[in-house]
Amino acid sequence: MIWLTWRQFRVQALTAAGTAAAIAIYLVILGMQIRDSYDSDVAGCKSNCSSARQHFLGQYESQVILVSVVLVVVPALIGLFWGAPLITRELEAGTHRMVWNQSVTRTRWLTVKLAFIGLAAAVLIGLLSLLLTWAASPYDKVEGNRFGALSFISRNITPIGYALFAFILATAIGLLVRRTMPAMAITLGALAVIQIVVPFGLRPHFQSPVRETVAMSGDISQSPSINVGGTGVNVVDFSIPGAWVLDSENELFDSKGKQVTEDEIKDCSSGMNYTEEVACMAKKNLHFNVSYQPADRYWTFQWIELTGYLVLAGLLSFFCLKRIRHPLV
Rank of each mutant, 00 (worst) to 15 (best):
C320W: 10
I220T: 13
E143P: 04
D219A: 05
A16N: 15
Q222C: 09
V64W: 08
E249T: 08
P224L: 01
V193D: 02
S269W: 11
F200D: 07
L119F: 03
L132S: 03
S51R: 15
I324P: 15
P241Y: 05
R297S: 15
R53Y: 00
R146F: 13
P159S: 07
I226F: 11
S151N: 12
Q33C: 00
S208N: 14
T133L: 09
H287C: 04
C268K: 00
S269A: 09
A76E: 03
Q195I: 14
S68E: 00
I160E: 03
D296L: 01
E92Q: 12
G230L: 10
I168M: 09
G257L: 00
R7S: 12
I324Y: 15
G242Q: 02
V69M: 04
V197P: 06
L306G: 04
A122W: 07
V198L: 15
P138G: 13
N156A: 09
N156V: 11
W134I: 01
G118Y: 07
I23S: 08
L77S: 14
Q195T: 15
L191S: 01
L86T: 09
Y292V: 04
T261S: 14
W244H: 15
D267M: 02
L202E: 10
A170R: 03
S103N: 06
L119G: 10
E90T: 06
W100M: 12
Q259W: 04
L150E: 12
G161Y: 00
T300Y: 09
Q293R: 13
A279R: 04
Y38H: 14
K322E: 05
R10W: 08
K256E: 08
A21D: 00
G242E: 06
T107I: 15
S255R: 07
E92H: 06
P138N: 10
Y162E: 00
V193N: 00
Q302P: 05
R10N: 00
H205S: 02
L86K: 02
I265C: 06
A52T: 11
S223P: 05
